[in-house]
Design a protein around this nucleic acid. Structure first.
Length: 573
DNA sequence: GCCGTTTTCGGCCCGACTGTTTTCAGTCG
């Protein structure tokens, strides 16, 4: 199950949406949104807190605290149920369409009875939106484009959602008597950015007890299939999970088979055929005699085919097999290589935790260094000022080295305006240890202008890292259109790193762009973009994405010792 | 609904963009 904090956050967010849709007090809705974020990012398990403890969470008062208690005591919240009864769930789904908010979703429902995304699409095609006030031709286009985007993400879920569930199921099944091994495989093991269904593989002589335990997990909505070696369930959140149980001596071949990708496996089986062998999920066999040669570990399967073991993140048939044959597989960056995080926020801007809390949590992760990069003044909503930034710097200097010797870097996340300029003049920027610069608006500039904008930012001698370079939001917003090869050349030329933003709805750059950028000799920074202490752990998804992009520790500046990093950050100045 | 006081209400991130409208509502970051 999701962390209790996540559950409550989701519920409160839903309540906030319902308040907005029903035209309730906008400030009340915002209060619930704020509380949802605060609880989602809170370090303590909210299901263990009492009324007083809950009210200590910023943004949570008596009323919300009581609702949280009600939720854990009864499993639901009366006020939420009341609004749910008034508004079909499909109407809330409408607001997930980019450019369509609560007001117009309600108009569609009240005026036309539209209560789902499908009905909306039909209504548009039937011309039923014509003449509806506030809905013109462009609006229809935008809605249809938004729906396409929504459907592209389709039934897939963000990698972190699938990962949390998979790890819990693996832990649960590993406790079952007779279970020899249990892991997740499939696209999750390859660190794909979204996951369609979860594949779990277990080894046991007797699959029965594992199957029973699996199909009676508490979050099973219904059992899709319950067989001898394979079962499938659908969870209450709508995610499909498959469990496959194999004999312990077939473990390696099964793991290889169920990890995929399909394209990778096809290539591997071709190699087997050329060697007069046959590879299946049960083992590697002699094609003629049918005798099983190996199957116990992935390593021996690959080895018998004349290949070194290939990291799952590489298994996409993107050249990994050729590289393996030449003995030129990269030594991929791992989470253990990361010495620090270079893009994080505090409650000075839109973060949820104080500087001290963030620094302490970072130190607990064993980092050698850590950068604080709050937003700069051009994102007006953040209300940043020179004075606030300088005061923060002073505090950062005081705390430097006080937490397990971890060194602190004071930075900022600058805003790249449409011309490629950033928030402050050089003289002020010179006071920072590093600057991340990112696009936060004007996502639709013509390609040439967008390219010029990013190149210009790279050429700024104080911009060290381009944050979430395409600014995409998975399933919600496509990335900006620019000539990225031109941008990559600029990065390499100016000593500007590109970010691999680890936030699961960004994962930006993605694997394909990383691969392209790497060829220009660009360096990368894998950052959490944490807005709360619990976000620091999301870094693993950035590392997974970097692995899919074939990055080695040498490619990633925040694996370097501090002295080498500082030299890079000087940017030849 | 929360918060912070100027202790019991009044403010709450604020500006820009889009598409619609004809002066602005809705949406977004």
């Amino acid at each position: 199950m999701a962390r209790p904090n996540e559950e409550v956050a989701t519920l409160l967010q839903e309540y906030a949406d319902l308040i907005s849709i029903t035209g309730g007090d906008a400030y009340k809705a915002r209060a619930y949104e704020k509380a949802a974020r605060a609880i989602g990012g809170y370090h303590e398990d909210v299901s263990t807190l009492d009324l007083k403890g809950l009210q200590r969470i910023p943004g949570v008062g008596k009323s919300i605290a009581e609702k949280v208690l009600e939720y854990f005591e009864t499993g639901s919240v009366h006020a939420v149920e009341e609004l749910r009864a008034k508004i079909p769930a499909g109407v809330r789904r409408l607001t997930e369409i980019p450019t369509l908010g609560p007001k117009r979703a309600m108009t569609l429902y009240e005026e036309l009875g539209v209560a789902s995304v499908e009905e909306l699409v039909d209504a548009i095609h039937a011309g039923r939106l014509r003449g509806l006030k506030g809905f013109g031709e462009k609006t229809e286009e935008n809605i249809l484009r938004g729906v396409r985007l929504l459907r592209q993400a389709g039934e897939r879920v963000p990698v972190n959602v699938a990962m949390e569930l998979a790890e819990e199921i693996v832990a649960e099944l590993s406790r079952v008597a007779g279970c020899r091994r249990c892991v997740y495989a499939g696209s999750l093991r390859r660190w794909r950015e979204t996951i369609g269904d979860i594949d779990i593989l277990a080894a046991a002589q007797q699959p029965g007890p594992l199957m029973d335990a699996f199909t009676s997990l508490p979050y099973v909505d219904y059992v899709v299939a319950h067989g001898d070696t394979k079962s499938s369930i659908r969870t209450t959140k709508g995610l499909q999970v498959d469990l496959r149980v194999v004999a312990p001596d077939a473990w390696g071949a099964a793991l290889q088979y169920f990890t995929g990708s399909k394209q990778h496996n096809i290539r591997i089986r071709e190699i087997a055929v050329h060697k007069k062998l046959k590879l299946s999920e049960y083992g590697l066999f002699d094609a003629r005699s049918g005798e099983r040669i190996v199957s116990e570990s992935e390593e021996e399967v690959y080895e018998r085919l004349g290949l070194p073991w290939i990291d799952p993140a590489l298994r996409e048939d993107r050249g990994e097999i050729e590289a393996a044959l030449r003995g030129e597989l990269p030594r991929l960056v791992t989470e253990r290589d990361i010495r620090g995080d270079l893009h994080t926020h505090t409650d000075l801007t839109d973060g949820l935790c104080s500087l001290e809390e963030m620094v302490e949590a970072a130190a607990r992760r064993g980092y050698a260094y850590y950068a604080i990069t709050d937003h700069a003044p051009n994102l007006r909503m953040q209300r940043m000022s020179d004075e606030k930034m300088l005061a923060q710097r002073e505090r950062v200097r005081e705390l430097d080295g006080r937490y397990r010797g971890m060194r602190l870097l004071h930075g900022a996340e600058l805003n790249i305006d449409p011309e490629g300029n950033v928030d402050w003049p050089d003289a002020f920027l010179a006071g920072f240890d590093l600057c991340v610069a990112s696009v936060h608006s004007h996502f639709n500039l013509p390609r040439e202008e967008m390219t010029r904008r990013l190149v210009r930012a790279c050429e700024n001698p104080y911009v060290n890292i381009i944050g979430h370079p395409t600014a995409r939001l998975i399933g919600r917003r496509p990335g900006i259109d620019a000539d990225f090869d031109e941008v990559f050349r600029a990065c390499a030329r100016t000593g500007t790193a590109l970010e691999v933003n680890a936030f699961p709805d960004r994962l930006d750059l993605n694997d394909e762009l990383i691969l392209r950028a790497k060829r220009y000799g660009v360096k990368f920074a894998i950052d959490s973009d944490a807005h709360s202490t619990v976000h620091l752990g999301l870094l693993r998804y950035g590392v997974g994405t970097a692995q899919r992009g074939w990055l080695t520790p040498d490619d990633v500046i925040n694996t370097w010792p501090l002295a080498r990093l500082r030299e890079f950050l000087r940017k030849g100045r």
